[in-house]
Design a protein around this nucleic acid. Structure first.
Lengths: 127, 127
DNA sequence: CGGCATCCATAACGATACTG
DNA sequence: CAGTATCGTTATGGATGCCG
């Protein structure tokens, strides 16, 4: 019988740890307010930077570029640049991005389903 | 015919705006790394503060209490205090909490599904 | 043991200005 | 129009200590 302890330090184990830390890294990237709101706003459309900025209420220029770069880096969206003047840049979700979008949709659905429930819980707690 | 403009400012409209801002508020609370990791770690178990701290790798004492209070306030988890010495505090997801957990599960599933895909995208981007 | 308060470093963010 | 850089502020999060 081979125990977990005996396996510790073997290559397969190192791989698992690396995969875990990578998963955590991706999760940290993705599990933040602005990233999820951008993905939700984009949906299955193709939007320009300015349009996206208008859709995601309250986001600053800086936050939008920052998160768009991050999402692009992770392969969750495509960034298409048209070399015109003035420049035109379009963003579209990739297939992995649309996959994530499905889970964000679920989360938004959850939010609305429990809206009043949560509001009541808050009132109770705040007294 | 009644247009949206004409409806603006009526009570029903104000209600909608309030619901939206509440939804956004809840979303901001919930769409953060630590909150989601806590919910995922808790699962359908009942865990003590210390156990939870051990489960959620890398979380500090402060972040854990802070997020637990927030989740409790929103009615996503139950906090049960046993007035013993030393004190014993147990946390369990409520029904709304378990609902959210389902979406977090989906998100974790998504992460693992696209792990290598994302890793490749990153390598491509970083060159 | 779990919670709360304090202090402090630094990371996040918004505003602004400049570039292609 | 979109992106980048800089600056100053605010917010976040860790460390520590004390209390019930």
């Amino acid at each position: 019988m081979v125990t977990k302890q005996q396996l510790a330090g073997l290559p397969e184990d190192a791989d698992l740890r690396r995969a875990d830390s990578l998963a955590r890294e991706i999760f940290s990237d993705v599990a933040n307010k602005w990233a999820l709101l951008i993905i939700e706003a984009l949906g299955d459309r193709t939007l320009r930077f300015g349009e996206l900025r208008a859709e995601v209420e309250g986001i600053s220029h800086k936050m939008l570029t920052q998160n768009l770069r991050m999402l692009e880096r992770n392969g969750l969206l495509d960034r298409k640049v048209y070399p015109t003047v003035p420049p035109r840049v379009e963003y579209t979700l990739t297939e992995p991005g649309r996959g994530l979008r499905a889970t964000v949709d679920a989360m938004c659905g959850w939010t609305h389903r429990y809206l009043t429930h949560i509001e009541n819980a808050r009132d109770r707690f705040d007294t």
